[in-house]
Design a binder for these strands. Sequence first.
DNA 1: AAATGGACCAACCGCATTATG
DNA 2: GCATAATGCGGTTGGTCCATT
Length: 383
Amino acid sequence: MVRSPCCEKGGLKKGPWTPEEDQKLLAYLKEHGHGSWQALPAKAGLQRCGKSCRLRWTNYLRPDIKRGKFSLQEENCIIRLHALIGNKWSAIATHLPQRTDNEIKNYWNTHLKKRLDKMGIDPGTHKPKVDAFGSGSGVLKDAAHLSHMAQWESARLEAEARMVRESKLASNQLGFPSPHQLFTTTTAAAAAVPPVRPKCLDVLKAWQGIVSGKFFVSSDSLESPTSTLNFSAVNSVVEFHQQSSVAIPPPQFPVCNITCKGEMGEDVSNQMAPQVKEALDGSISVHGMSAYTTENAWALDSFEAAANENASIGNIAEGLSAIVPYNCGEQNASMPGEKTATSESCGGGGNLEDLQGDYWNSLLLNLVDDPLLQSVMITYQGK
DNA sequence: AAATGGACCAACCGCATTATG
DNA sequence: GCATAATGCGGTTGGTCCATT
C-alpha cells in the first residue's frame, strides 16, 4: 500500500512540539475543526506533516484527555483487558475513555509489564512463568480454561472498539462534535448527557442459551472467536427471568436477520423461545448443530457442574466461580499481587505460587464482577 | 561536580485498513 | 475494480529528567 506522501516531504519540522505550535494548532482546530489533516498544517501555518498534527491532537491536545497518574482501577482494567486481548491498545483505550492508546501502551511498557514480571507472571501470556515448563498446576489448567473465554471476550472487545470507531466516524460525518463544542463543553454539561455504552456483541447472551441447554458449544466453536454457536432444535420452552436488582437493558443491537438451523439444516427460528431469540438477535449468528465435547466446552461444564450440585442453577457468577482455582475471600479490588488483609489472612503467604494464584484469582474475580458480565446476570429456571 | 544508567513519555516510523475518486 | 489518499494502529526511538556512583 502506498505510504502517506506527507512523510516524504522535506523541510517539515520533526521532534517535540513548541507551545507556539500547540497554540497554532489549537486555534486552527477551534476555528475550523480538523477536516483533512493533510491540508491542515499549511492552512494553520505549521511546518509539520498532517500526521504529526493529528498525533499531537489525539495524544496530547484533545480536551477530554485525563493526564497524570493511573488509578488502581485503571491499572486493573488495563491488566485484565491485556490478559484478554493482548496488545490491542486502541481496543483497551475504548474502555478507558480519557486515556489514549499511546498513554496506555507506554504505561504498560514502563510500569505494568515490569510489575507482572516481578510477580513471576509472564506479561505476554499472563501465565505464571514457572508453568511454562509444564508443572501442570491447577492455576495453569484454569488459565487454559480462561483462554477460551478470553477468545470470546477478545472478539467482543474488538467488536466494541470497532463500533466506537464507527460511531465516532458517524459523528464526524454528521458534524458532531463541532470544534466549538469540543472546546466549550463543560463537565457539568457532559454529566447531563447519560453515558452511552457502546453497542457490543455480548457473548454472555449466548451463554444464556448454553445454560438453558438449548445451545451447545461445539469443539471448534470455542477454537475461534469468530465461529458461531450452534443451536439444537429441542422444542421445550426455556424461561428466563431477571434478577430483581439487575435490569437487563432492551436490545441495543441493530436488528439483523438471524438464521437458526437445526441438525438437518432446517430453519428452526420459530421454535426458539422469544427470550432466547431476543437475546441472540443482533449479537451472534446461529447455525447448525455439531457435537458437544466435554473437553472443550468448559463453560457448559462449569454451568452443568453447578446445576448438578444445585437444583436451581445459579447465575453467571456461579458458573465462573466453579473455575476459580482457590477462592480466597472477598474480591480484592487492588492491584493483583498487592497483598490485602483479606488475602493475607486466608493464606496468601507471599511465595511465588501464592502470588500467582492471587493474580489469577484477581483476574477471574474481576471478570465475575465485571459490569459487562453483571449486565446479563441471568437466573435459570426449570431445566 | 561529572559521568552513568534507568525511567519515563512524546513523537516518529511504517504497515494495515478504510475511504474516495 | 483499481489506484491513491487518508487514517488507524502498534512497535520503536530518542530526548529529558533524576537517582546513583
